[in-house]
Design a protein around this nucleic acid. Structure first.
Lengths: 300, 300
DNA sequence: CGATCTTACGGGATTCGTAAACATA
DNA sequence: TATGTTTACGAATCCCGTAAGATCG
């Protein structure tokens, strides 16, 4: 025989009112049904919990003890379920975001800041990793969501496209290209270049563009970090291409940049989640947040 | 929709084994039945708790949170029910004993001491009141049990007879009656007497005996307390009658006593409980304790 | 006689187990 | 193909509500 939560509720109603019929009304139950429940509970306990006299009901010693225990039990239960409801509704929880380097510097912090305003009790964690690694974190379940260039044909991923991240040419303000209205691939060909190393998705995009337009650039420098790249450019040693998002939240004094006028000189940034794993309740509101922010990003 | 304890148990089994089929075996349930329970629980929660892949089951973020909550919940529940079991079985609890003065001095402390050895975690409370008051405490529910002379024809009381408490004549060792083998009512007639006042049941018994044997005694003193009575006797001012139980645990140096040889010079002491109120689980073992002790009392 | 709890009993919802279907490594 | 979960469905069980019975003031 097992004691159910309903029985505990019913017991508490009877204990509070000291009346079977009133408790039945409170529990939206017929009086005999409530009586039967109390009886079953007493059988489970192995002791009477109430003394029934004709005109009044009173608690036995065991009943009084059970009243304390049951009150605590019901309270714990309610607290626990309320807490769970917070997690389900997305009021509380933990959200792990992975962001590709370009996103980690600009979009991700803003998205997280906006999200945190609406969800002050949520712990948000940010991992900044190269695109492939970020997506890997989502695949492995370490991260709930990656902000990263979308991955072509990946059935195990759900990808929400956010905005197009155009390539820009970055050069010193004194550089000849800085004063041009538009910059095309063939315009940049003559100049010494800096590129990031192979592992970066930016490098892959730039290489693809080179190939597409049959442009052979002069890679004078191959660096690991964007900071180095910008330093070289600021020192007038070379020019380089970067996604626009990289430039957004960076100090650009001493640098000029121009969008590259090519119909394919961009990559699509997406919010990437696992399609096999069932989503955290926090993902949906965070996605909305990303979309709102993306429209603002696109306008600029 | 309400979440049941069974569902919590089932959830925990799945969470521990991360296998629906193994959990079903653990819960003595068919696997589809268990599956349905998890499904209902998830619907109650409003969120998936497990991700089912073909070869392995894993917990969602919400599931992991629920695991903590549910573990605590189950543990609390088990603790609470175990505690209740202690109260029902009589391992823990509180027992309120009322004892008539004669019992409060001798029988009751011994009974409580013996009971406390077997039930170290039980709180025992002792009220020493005149017989009628003691029985009143039982009737009103303040006391669980009274050790007192039995009450004739009281349907609302359950009375377990324990032993016969004989009247003894108490006198100074130098008194003529102290050297007699047997003492009868007519033997005590010539001497000055001390009696307790009307409210005591001892007085009522003595009066009844006087009446029965047509003896007119000389009540030289009427006192409230037995101590006073014994003091007067020790001072050779008078003799008096008392129930034997009074003498048992009292310093009797300077006093002699003899049972009064009369077939009705006793009262029956009983353990008195309420028959309307359902008995505390502690009453039965305490009654056994009283009966064991009563046989020892009767032998002396 | 009236208020209140208990017992008796029929009907409806819930939950179980078996069997078949389905999905993936 | 083999392992493991879900779906489908008939059956047993549980639980409720109505009606009648019992008890005490």
């Amino acid at each position: 025989m097992n004691v159910s939560l309903r029985q505990v509720e019913i017991f508490l109603a009877v204990a509070r009112t000291l009346s079977f019929s009133q408790a039945a009304r409170d529990c939206h139950l017929s009086q005999p049904a409530l009586s039967a429940n109390v009886k079953r509970l007493e059988e489970s306990m192995g002791a009477r919990l109430f003394d029934r006299h004709t005109r009044k009901v009173s608690m036995t010693a065991v009943g009084q003890e059970f009243f304390k225990v049951a009150s605590a039990m019901a309270e714990n239960m309610d607290m626990a379920l309320a807490r769970m409801q917070d997690f389900v509704s997305g009021k509380r929880g933990r959200l792990v975001i992975a962001a590709a380097p370009s996103m980690a510097a600009s979009f991700a912090p803003q998205a997280i800041a906006e999200f945190a305003r609406d969800h002050p009790e949520v712990d948000v964690e940010l991992h900044d990793e190269l695109s492939d690694l970020s997506v890997g974190l989502v695949r492995s379940g370490v991260a709930d969501l990656a902000l990263s260039p979308v991955v072509p044909k990946a059935a195990d991923l759900r990808q929400l496209e956010l905005f197009r991240d155009h390539l820009v040419l970055v050069c010193h303000p004194s550089h000849p290209l800085a004063s041009r209205a538009t910059v095309r691939w063939r315009d940049v060909q003559p100049y010494a270049h800096v590129v990031v190393n192979q592992s970066s998705s930016v490098r892959q995009l730039v290489d693809a563009q080179y190939a597409r337009y049959g442009v052979r650039l002069r890679p004078a420098f191959e660096v690991a970090h964007v900071g180095t790249m910008l330093g070289l450019i600021a020192a007038k040693l070379c020019v380089g291409e970067l996604p626009e998002s990289f430039i957004r939240n960076i100090d650009t004094t001493g640098l000029s940049y121009r969008r590259i006028a090519s119909s394919a000189a961009y990559r699509t940034i997406g919010a990437i989640t696992s399609s096999s794993r069932s989503p955290s309740p926090l993902i949906a509101p965070f996605l909305e947040c990303c979309q709102r922010l993306a429209t603002r990003f696109a306008r600029n």
